[in-house]
Design a protein around this nucleic acid. Structure first.
Lengths: 193, 193
DNA sequence: AAAACTTCTTGTCATTTGACAAGAAATTAA
DNA sequence: TTAATTTCTTGTCAAATGACAAGAAGTTTT
């Protein structure tokens, strides 16, 4: 199975010699999951780091009333990681579940550590990947503070329309920080225009 | 001027040989700012990375109505960084302002790059620092989604009571994602109990 | 096809929060 | 000390959102 898409993704984060991207990608193993399966569950420890080649994944936890709260929605191609658990080997606090059939590539901490300390390009790549993820989260947090629920919804619709084919409105509502009935009303309002 | 506090902080993130922590710290230069000065302003480029030895700093931007929104409050000892700008040399999107007199230590990208590629402990340290910051942000975002404004307020009061001596309620309100009048009402409610 | 289940929408009402304005309290400047 | 400025509180009213329940629409199972 070819690691081509992974290599292209690596190059899109940090351009480097093809041979190096190939070397990094060569340590990854391919696997598939069908819809509604888990890659990581609460309280387990993340043994691997995952690249999502195709499909959709979400992470979720529970609020104080036991309702699911979707914390992130991943749309391929991207890395799906629980950084804290993977690098510190502490338990995962969320559940990572596929929203569709998915193709993944995984590699373990040993491989990552070897590359991190032996391939300068990989170090730079990892750092950039962190930064990208950090700023996605930062933007999302800012959106929660600055924007109305309506504007958060329309922005998601613009940026990731394909998510709506794979996640229920309940999941999307909890990702936006509102209830499903509020989202339903917002959609009704918008459709009037 | 002694880098002792910086060394202790580095060791608290990742324990390492004293000589290595000293070597890392030796590349930092001390400076002071008084209250209400800026370390980074919108649209500038972050030339340095900063360690806050004592004092309080906040970062802020503006919402669609031109109101200040406090995005983060930093309480020494900690690093104060705009990762995106510092590592990619793109413009800063927020303002970083002191809330009190502060003692900082700074070092530039060249030094960081040298250490990152030549001191394995520094690489591990940087990665952990990223992870810590990522999860602080993650927790804050989750709080915005899961908790009520009242509970966000009481949690901040418990965790960082000293922030209240250095930031106005307007600043704290915008950090909590509410208006200052709402915060005032929440405080009134709580004081009744 | 019928039954069971899930998802989505809608109604009602309560609660939270915001917008705006006025005044009190505290801080800073003259 | 007085004046000016900023910060904080409070009142009023409107808007956004949640909680809960019922029903419609769509899917899956039998």
């Amino acid at each position: 199975m070819k690691t081509e898409i992974l290599e292209i993704y690596i190059q899109s984060v940090l351009p480097m010699k093809i041979e190096i991207a190939e070397k990094i990608a060569s340590k990854f193993d391919r696997f598939e999951l069908s819809k509604n399966e888990f890659i990581l569950q609460e309280n387990s420890i993340s043994e691997d780091t995952y690249f999502l080649e195709s499909g959709f994944v979400r992470s979720y936890t529970f609020d104080n009333n036991g309702n699911e709260v979707t914390t992130n929605i991943f749309s391929a191609p991207c890395f799906v990681n629980d950084f804290l658990s993977f690098f510190t080997q502490k338990p995962v606090k969320e559940n990572y579940q596929t929203l569709s059939n998915c193709i993944f590539w995984k590699t373990n901490l040993e491989n990552v550590q070897y590359n991190f300390h032996n391939i300068p390009e990989f170090r730079e790549f990892s750092r950039l990947l962190f930064i990208i993820n950090y700023y996605k989260l930062h933007d999302r947090m800012l959106e929660m503070v600055k924007e109305t629920a309506t504007s958060r919804y329309t922005k998601l619709l613009e940026k990731h329309p394909n998510i709506f084919q794979n996640a229920s409105l309940k999941i999307i509502a909890s990702y936006l920080g509102i209830t499903d009935s509020s989202l339903s009303r917002i959609r009704k309002e918008i459709s009037k225009i």
